Simulated scan of single mutants.
Amino acid sequence: MNDKYEACKVLLTTCSNCKIDENILIVTDPTSFEVAKLMWDAMGEYKNKSIVMMDERTMHGQDPNKVVAGAMAKADVIFGCTKFSLFHSQARRDAVAGGARFVNMVDYSVEMLEKGGLYCDFESIGKICTSIAKKLEGGKTCHITTASGSDFTCSIADRAPNPQYARSLVSGASSSPPDVECATCAVEGTGDGIVYIDGSIPHPELGLITDQIKLTIKKGLIVDITGGDQAQKLKRIMKEFNDPNVYNVGEIGLGLNPMCELNGRMLEDEGCGGTVHFGCGDNRGFGGIVASAYHLDMVFKNPTLTVDGKVILDEGKIV
């Protein structure tokens, strides 16, 4: 185990380049307060730090209350240390549009500060992320298969790649360390096929998948969810959102961090090398046009992914 404060320092320096006199804000909630307090303790030398606690949201992408959103709008650097992600919230969009740097620390555990993806070589992996983005640039058709039977095709025409380096170093930047990934976005209405989710779905009722879930996708929407108990839970959860847009398959993210391991927590799982995840629901952060209060990620292992016939991932390995 590493010293957990070492990871806090990585977040304050490598991942955000915090300056001593900047206005630094930690947004947290009761579930995540233990990690937020460790970050606070690690900020001893930062003289303009603040921490604000709010009630927990009920799903990723929901906005904080107006008081918290107002504080975010005034900050130079924001650490979103919350149970559910603020990344797809309007408050985060508004804050970074105003020049803030946002670091997403959704669903962190103390263990994540002691080992795992935060101890990677962010600079070296960043170069790989850039190379993947170049391969996605200008692509028209994305095709994904897995040994378990997944076979999915969609258009990514005119959708710019979205490399995530897990570092927020410039004004307006957002990141989610240790999630190093490069994402693209399925054009609405074009996704078709079958995908077996066998990695994780970072939601409190699901986490690591023990009985693979079959998604049937037609014209860009999940039209059927089948499998065992976890499939039935997913079906119920998505239905309870009461928003037809949550069934939209938008983000297609390629995990690139070799030090991440699937553990049911969003940022380790999304960044886990050798995986791809679908982000369902809101896709505006990836160049799409579907608005939703929800964004749910579903991770599957060892995919083969091609763009216009060129192999980018071969059973999870970068080509």
Rank of each mutant, 00 (worst) to 15 (best):
G281V: 12
D76V: 04
E188I: 10
I225F: 01
E6Y: 07
A75P: 12
V180W: 01
K219R: 06
A97G: 14
F79Q: 08
D55C: 07
I125R: 02
N162C: 15
D198A: 02
C18M: 15
T190M: 04
L256F: 02
Y5R: 02
N245S: 09
D314S: 14
L254Q: 04
K218R: 11
S171W: 04
G44F: 13
A100V: 10
S109E: 12
S176F: 06
K233Y: 10
Q62V: 09
C18R: 10
Q230P: 08
S174D: 13
L118E: 05
G139L: 02
Y108I: 01
N302C: 05
K235H: 12
A173Y: 11
I213R: 06
C18F: 05
I222H: 11
G273M: 12
V307W: 07
K214D: 01
P163V: 13
C272T: 15
D63T: 07
D282I: 10
S292V: 07
E123D: 14
R167D: 06
F152G: 04
Q164K: 08
V187A: 06
K47Q: 03
E261M: 11
L296H: 06
S150R: 09
I237N: 11
I51V: 13
G199A: 10
M39G: 11
G279F: 06
G172K: 11
R57Y: 00
S109H: 04
N2H: 15
N257K: 02
N245M: 11
C280M: 15
R159G: 00
M266N: 04
F79T: 12
G220A: 09
G149T: 05
T306F: 08
V170T: 10
P303F: 05
I289D: 13
N263F: 00
I128S: 13
G191A: 15
S50L: 05
D55G: 14
R265F: 12
G61I: 00
I213G: 12
I132V: 15
V290L: 10
E315Y: 09
A291Q: 13
K317R: 09
V246M: 13
H143S: 08
P204G: 05
A147N: 10
A42M: 11
M112G: 00
Y108S: 09
I197C: 00
L113D: 07
L86G: 05
D211P: 03
M72V: 01
H203W: 13
A75L: 09
L206Y: 03
I24G: 08
A69S: 13
H295V: 06
C280L: 14
S131M: 14
V187D: 08
K4G: 00
V96T: 15
T14E: 15
A69Y: 01
S131F: 02
V311E: 14
R101D: 08
E137M: 07
R284Q: 14
C280S: 12
I20C: 06
V77N: 02
T82W: 00
G264K: 01
G138L: 05
Y119W: 01
F241H: 13
R57I: 01
L118V: 04
I194Q: 00
K4N: 07
D308Q: 12
F84K: 01
T190D: 02
E123C: 00
P178K: 06
V299D: 08
T153M: 09
G227N: 03
G80P: 06
G149I: 06
A91W: 01
K37G: 00
Y46N: 03
Y247W: 14
T304L: 05
V195A: 08
V68W: 10
E205S: 15
G139N: 04
T304F: 01
T130I: 03
S174Q: 14
K301R: 10
T28M: 06
